[in-house]
């Protein structure tokens, strides 16, 4: 290795370290503030004592166990409904011809262009008429027929060779049997990739749950976090950071455990 190569390698190493550190800095900061006493929240002192007191105070400050349960019910019910509704619709759009198909698909695509948050006022009225204000079903209902999932699954189903469907039909499979035994198993990477996006999006969703809920029994984690208030209102950053870490810990842990599967799913999903 000559001097020039050594120089570029050193630049590359420094650049990679710098980017990695910059990227992780805000999260490292949250860890730092959460595990140290309040007086060290914005001071970086290597000898600062470690403490779990901030987590204890944050846990006592808000009913986190209830928020965790609400969030878990919310994301799993949304995902379950999305998988069923969108799989059926995507199969019909991908493999059947029926009257009004183009218009129906266009209506679904319009949803892809506009985020549901913009329709909050009208959706609140609909939920009020359905008696679903301040309920977990009310938070999840607007997201259950996901245009993104229908579009993604339709694209994936269209790539599956018809010969496989034909073989299954000869073996006596009904149309729903073909969907269940051929299309769904072959689209597993797309389902995993979509599941990841859906769970992280709804775990993190804030605005709609903030509007539609008004009790501890239904509030998800993100809305619960908001009650910690602003730093300038006297609440200390260490406790906010501890609450923040508790809120994101399940997703981060799940990601650390399943990251290989997640990344491979995105690789095979062919999102384009």
């Amino acid at each position: 290795m000559n001097a020039s190569e050594r120089f570029f390698r050193a630049v590359e190493t420094t650049g990679a370290w710098l980017l990695a550190l910059l990227w992780i800095a805000p999260l490292l900061y949250a860890f730092w503030a959460a595990f140290h006493p309040s007086e060290y929240a914005v001071r970086f002192v290597l000898t600062a004592p470690l403490t779990l007191d901030n987590f204890v105070r944050a846990w006592d400050f808000a009913p986190f166990a209830r928020y965790f349960l609400n969030t878990f019910i919310l994301v799993t019910s949304i995902l379950a409904a999305q998988l069923v509704l969108c799989t059926l619709a995507a199969y019909a759009f991908a493999r059947f011809e029926f009257p009004g198909r183009e218009i129906a698909f266009l209506l679904v695509l319009v949803q892809l262009m506009i985020v549901p948050e913009i329709l909050i006022v009208e959706n609140y009225g609909t939920m009020a008429r359905l008696g679903l204000v301040d309920s977990i079903l009310g938070i999840g209902l607007p997201y259950m027929a996901s245009a993104f999932a229908i579009f993604l699954l339709r694209q994936t189903f269209k790539t599956i060779p018809r010969e496989l469907e034909e073989a299954a039909r000869i073996e006596g499979c009904g149309r729903l049997g073909v969907l269940w035994r051929v299309y769904v198993p072959l689209s597993k990477p797309t389902y995993v990739a979509f599941g990841l996006v859906s769970v992280s999006h709804h775990w993190n969703n804030f605005l709609w749950p903030l509007i539609i809920t008004n009790s501890v029994e239904t509030r998800p984690l993100t809305v619960g976090l908001a009650i910690f208030g602003a730093p300038e209102s006297g609440v200390d950053w260490s406790m906010i950071s501890a609450g923040t870490l508790m809120a994101v810990a399940p997703l981060l842990l799940a990601f650390l455990i399943f990251q290989r599967q997640f990344v491979q799913s995105f690789m095979h999903a062919g999102l384009k």
Binding site: A20, W23, I24, P26, L27, S200, W203, N204, N205, F206, T222, L225, A226, T244, A247, V248, L251, L252, F255, Q259
Partner: peptide, 11 residues
């Protein structure tokens, strides 16, 4: 690089 993926916007 993937860590912020799981952080809510509010967080």
């Amino acid at each position: 690089y993937r860590w912020p993926l799981f952080i809510p916007f509010i967080v």
